[in-house]
Structure formats: structure tokens, C-alpha cells
Write a protein that binds this DNA or RNA. Structure first.
Length: 578
RNA sequence: CGGGGCGUGGCGCAGUCUGGCUAGCGCACCUGCCUUGGGAGCAGGGGGUCGGAGGUUCAAAUCCUCUCGCCCCGACCA
């Protein structure tokens, strides 16, 4: 391709709306064009990268017996009502009506459609297992799109769905997907951490997120440096150290009510009582799908709303509005699990309150707290749960020794063992007859990769101050050809190399009337793996020059050897991506 | 949804507080000359009505009201 025809428009200056490095470089390099918040066009260069990524994804999906298909973005609302997601998902799901006032949604994933297709055709155990996938547009009306192409409202996703005769078969297949994901990211030049994840509203029994560690990531996960335990902070469990406690509960002084006018927060209490954060019991009331829930945790921990929501299996959860509490006779700021025997209130005690200690808690009475509170004596702590946010430095719950570190990452892929969430009789009811002629329920898994986000992640990982450094596997072109010198002989040699190399490589010839400096800068910015230079000087020595973008190495060789040399270099770089 | 910031030729910005000459600068773009190993030089030139609407005023990019859009932090996130 000649540069003058390739519709490549690079920017010298950093667009003012871009802060994240991948956003800046993809805009400057002419890869993407913003159309609206969280909605981008892929310009020709970006399109080529996405195509290359898609090829890798297809190869790996096909390798684990995936079959590609295409499903529609516009979905009838009925399907989504059938699974309940029409009601469970908020404004993120775009709902609309057609000319006949029939209700539709714009699909944010395709469980509904794929399951509908599957149930139409699955009759016998002989039809199972299988895996269907597509690379297709997803629409999500994100509250806050961000970081260029990392969090979009319209994006391409490789979504895959596997169907099995039983959980056993899913468990056998799941690791294959896991390995395929690893390979996909590695072939794109990325090393990911596969972490235990929260499965959110998708439901199911197991879930992993593939994270690229990055300062521009929006997700947090923990890693144990000792045993290698990795998990999303929404799920991670840390050992909760005890506080200075009591040896013998029976020797503890009785509860004592203290007048604490207007003292509501933990920091107010710390000042009032002059004791540590960890000696207080923090109680927060939530409204979960209409139920009132009181969650209690030690003051030096924070409640993880995700863990709490999962524990309650709640779809919608919010901090209980004050009016509701007051109406029911509770006092925000002075809540505690002590003396609550209202059957309409569910009390959850975090495991940080397992330790016997003398603590301070609300008295469930306006302007009063209790001191000398002993968990287990003054309220039931025989059944505790983990609803605490993990903290940096907490001890790893798996090995019991290592310290947990919190890292930031970009979520590139997510795999779920869905189980029967969508095939259940309360959902879409998908069954088959086993070899005994008995009806059995189909078991599912689903697996997603964000394609543009993967492109952005590659840039986050592979760039320098001059621009992008594409791995050969995804680069939009292999070779950036620059001819220096105005003479006919330079031009002729350029033509010759261009047409010769074109049969084996994707060559971008910068044929613009520009100074060499401009072309060098653009070659670096766009990030093509190899730069090939023909110049007057080099021709005197019967040589051309190859510069490797990634390493900066420069090789000279005779024009007739270029093709072989490039092939060798490219193959070497490809091999290093496995 | 809460908080903050920004909208002025294609891009980056100044001008706005304190209304007033023809709205300015750099880059990009066009023409000519010159130049070809890291975003060259000289000369000439084209292009904006200041996000939008309404208002105040003799006079509005500038003041007021409403509104739209974009970015960042947070909440949310299949």
C-alpha cells in the first residue's frame, strides 16, 4: 500500500481530550476516530489491527472446537424477559420499540439468543457438547465510558458459549478455554494474570478474569507473592488479624450505655472514646431487593458491597434510606446488631467479629452507644460471613503466610461457568434426553474478550516515547518503506523492493513528498515492526537498511537479500510470542 | 447519578476576570523557489463568527439565563 492512498492521518499534537497512553497514541497514529462519548470509528489502520487480532482469536477458538456464527444485535425483548435480565439490568441495556411498538433491546451479550438457538436444536445427548462463538458488536450504555477505547459503549466482543450434558463435562472443557485465552493474549504480546473473579449478575459457579497489569487499569486485584493466589478484590479473601482481645469472656464487665450525642462516624467515635478503629463495630443498613439487611463489621475493615450482594443473592442493593430506618424505629449512626429481634431485618456479621474483645457499638437508640460490647456474648456471632473488602498487606487466606498486594489491571477476558442459569426451567428451559432416555438439563459456559480493549492493552504494554511498538502478530503492516533521495535510481530500487516484498509482507510505502525526518517520525509513531530505508548513500554501498522498531537494531544488507532477512527477523519475533 | 474541568479555523492554544479597533499565534493545508538521514527554509495565500438558543447593552468570544457536547475523579459495570 502506498501511503498517499492509505488514508493514514497522523497528528503531531496530543489531542486535549486524551490522557491515557493508548488513547493518545491510537488517536495520534490515526487508528481511531471519536464519534461520540465511548463510540469510535476504527480508521483503516485500526481496522487492520482489529482484523489481525480477530484472526488470532478465531484460530484459537477453532482449535478448541469452537464454531463461528453471527447473531443479531437487535433482540426481541421477550427473550430478555424470559431470562429476567430485561428487569434485572438497569439503564445499561438499551431498550427500544419498532414501528409497530414491539419492544426490542440492543444486545449487550448473547446468552438469550444463543440459548434460544441451542434449545431449538438440542434433542439428544448426541448433540452435545458444542461451542458457538462470534466476533460482533455489543451495545452497553455505560454510565461512564473512559480511557479511549478501553471502556466503550459500542464495541466488538468475541463471545463464546459452550453447551454440555453435565457439570462434569463443563469442568473438563473449561480449562481448554482458559488455555486458549492464555494463548490468544500471549500471541498478542501480553502476559495476563488469570484471577478468580466475581461472576456478578451473570451468575454461575466459577469465573476467571484475564488481567493485564497496568497503571491505567480500572480493575483491582490482589496477588499473594508467596503462593501465587490471585483474585479480584471483589472476591479476594484475606486473613483478618485479631485485635487485642480477652482471654476469658466471663471476666468481661457488663454492657454499659454511654451518652454520645451526635457522635456517628467511626472517626468521631475514635475521638470520643480515644480508642483504635479496630475496637468499634461498624453497622450499616442496606435495602436489598426490598429486604432490610444490617451488616456489621469491625471498624478497621470496609464492607464489600459486592460480597454482600452475592451473599444475599440480591439483584438491587443500596444503602437503606434514612426514612425507612426511622420509620422502623432505627437510628442511623447508632445502629448495631445488639438486641435486634425484628424478623424483618436480616443481620449479617462479618468474620472480623469472631474474636472475643471488648468493643464499642451503637445502642440502637438515638445518641447512645454501648461500651464493653463482647461479640458472642452481646450478640450472636456463631455464624459469620466474609463481607469485608480485602486490604493491602492482609495475610493470604490460601497459604496463610504471604501478604496480599493490590494491583491495577485491564480486564481483557472473562470466563464463566454459567451452569444452568439460562437453561433452568425458570429461565429458558433447555433439556435433552440422555442415553437412558431420561430428560437432563443442559449446562453452559460463556467466555468473552473485548477486541478494541485488547488492541488498546497491547498499546499500553508496547510503546515508547516515540509511539506504538506493535508485536508482529497484530501490526497493521509489516514493513514501512522509506526512499531518501530524489534520484531516479533510488525511486527505481524502491519500486522494485516494494513489488517484490508485497507478495510476502504487508508493505506500507511512504511515497509522500516529505522530508526524511517526517517519515521517520511517522514510522515510529504508527509503530510498524520493520522500517526499510533506501537512500543515495546506502546505494553507493549496494545496501539497504532494516531497522527493528522494537529493539532499535539496525541491519544492512544487499537489496536482493532483504526479503530473506525480513522473513527471518519476522519469524524470530513471532516465535518469541509463544 | 454526584464532584471537577473544558468548548475560539483541521490540531494545539491566547484573548473572557476588567465588554469596544479588521478575533490572534504555532502547527497543518494551498502556490512558488529551495531542500532530502530524524517533524527544514524563504515568499505569497485560503480557511473560523467564538458549541447552541435567548437576554442585557450604543456595542458581546467576553456579562446573565437556559441548553448541548467532550474529558477527568467517584458511584455503577453482563
Amino acid at each position: 500500500m502506498k501511503r498517499t492512498r492509505a488514508f493514514i492521518h497522523t497528528l503531531y499534537e496530543v489531542p486535549k481530550d486524551a490522557e491515557v497512553v493508548s488513547h493518545v497514541l491510537l488517536l495520534r497514529g490515526g487508528y481511531i476516530y471519536p464519534v461520540a462519548a465511548g463510540i469510535y470509528a476504527l480508521l483503516p489502520l485500526g481496522h487492520r489491527v482489529v482484523e489481525n487480532i480477530s484472526i488470532i482469536v478465531r484460530e484459537e477458538m477453532n482449535r478448541i472446537d469452537g464454531v463461528e456464527l453471527t447473531m443479531p444485535v437487535l433482540n426481541p425483548a421477550e427473550l430478555w424477559k424470559e431470562t429476567g435480565r430485561y428487569y434485572d439490568i438497569g439503564d445499561e441495556l438499551i431498550r427500544l420499540k419498532d414501528r409497530k411498538q414491539r419492544e426490542f433491546v440492543l444486545a449487550m451479550t448473547h446468552e438469550e439468543v444463543v440459548t434460544d438457538i441451542a434449545r431449538k436444536f438440542i434433542r439428544s445427548y448426541r448433540d452435545l457438547p458444542f461451542m458457538l462463538y462470534q466476533i460482533q458488536t455489543k451495545i452497553r450504555d455505560e454510565a461512564r465510558p473512559r480511557a479511549g477505547v478501553i471502556r466503550l459503549r459500542e464495541f466488538l466482543m468475541k463471545d463464546a458459549y459452550s453447551f454440555h450434558g453435565d457439570f462434569n463435562d463443563l469442568d473438563k472443557y473449561y480449562p481448554k478455554v482458559y488455555e486458549a485465552y492464555r494463548r490468544i493474549f500471549e500471541r498478542c504480546g501480553l502476559r495476563t494474570a488469570a484471577i478468580e473473579a466475581d461472576s456478578g449478575i451473570m451468575g454461575g459457579s466459577g469465573s476467571h478474569e484475564f488481567m493485564l497489569e497496568s497503571p491505567n487499569g480500572e480493575d483491582q486485584f490482589v496477588i499473594c507473592s508467596l503462593c501465587g493466589y490471585q483474585a479480584n478484590t471483589e472476591r479476594a479473601i484475606g486473613v483478618k488479624p485479631g485485635v487485642e482481645g480477652l482471654d476469658d469472656i466471663s471476666s468481661a464487665p457488663p454492657l454499659e450505655k454511654v451518652h454520645t450525642p451526635g457522635v456517628k462516624t467511626i472517626s468521631d467515635l475514635m475521638k470520643f472514646f480515644e480508642i483504635d478503629r479496630g475496637k468499634f463495630i461498624k453497622s450499616v443498613a442496606y435495602l436489598a431487593d426490598g429486604r432490610l439487611v444490617l451488616a456489621a463489621i469491625r471498624g478497621d475493615f470496609e464492607i464489600s458491597e459486592t460480597k454482600l450482594r452475592n451473599r444475599l443473592k440480591a439483584i438491587k442493593m443500596e444503602i437503606a434510606p434514612e426514612e425507612i430506618l426511622i420509620e422502623k424505629g432505627y437510628h442511623p449512626g447508632f445502629l448495631s446488631p445488639i438486641g435486634i429481634n425484628d424478623p424483618s431485618v436480616e443481620v449479617l456479621i462479618d468474620s472480623s467479629l469472631e474474636y472475643p474483645a471488648m468493643m464499642v457499638a451503637g445502642a440502637n437508640e438515638e445518641d447512645y452507644h454501648y461500651k464493653n460490647v463482647v461479640p458472642g456474648r452481646d450478640f450472636d456471632n456463631s455464624r459469620t460471613v466474609d463481607i469485608a473488602e480485602v486490604r493491602e498487606g492482609d495475610v493470604c487466606a490460601r497459604c496463610g503466610k504471604g501478604k496480599l498486594e493490590i494491583r491495577r489491571g485491564i480486564e481483557l477476558g472473562h470466563t464463566f461457568k454459567l451452569g444452568t442459569k439460562y437453561t433452568d426451567e425458570k429461565s429458558m428451559n433447555v433439556t435433552y434426553l440422555d442415553d437412558q432416555g431420561r430428560e437432563q438439563r443442559v449446562v453452559m459456559g460463556c467466555y468473552g474478550i473485548g477486541i478494541e480493549r485488547l488492541m488498546a492493552a497491547v498499546v499500553e504494554k508496547w510503546h515508547d516515547e516515540n509511539g506504538i511498538i506493535w508485536p508482529v502478530s497484530v501490526a497493521p503492516y509489516d514493513v514501512y518503506l522509506i526512499v531518501i533521495g530524489k534520484g531516479e535510481s533510488e525511486k527505481t530500487l524502491g519500486e522494485r523492493l516494494y513489488s517484490e516484498l508485497n507478495s510476502k509482507f504487508e508493505v506500507l510505502w511512504d511515497d509522500r513528498q516529505e522530508s526524511p525526518g517526517v517519515k521517520f517520525k511517522d514510522a515510529d509513531l504508527i509503530g510498524i515492526p520493520f522500517r526499510l530505508v533506501v537512500s543515495t548513500k546506502l546505494m553507493k554501498e549496494n545496501a539497504v537498511e532494516i531497522k527493528v522498531r522494537q529493539s532499535g537494531e539496525v541491519f544492512r544488507c544487499a537489496p536482493e537479500d532483504v526479503s530473506a532477512r525480513l522473513e527471518e527477523l519476522k519469524q524470530g519475533m513471532k516465535n518469541s510470542l509463544r
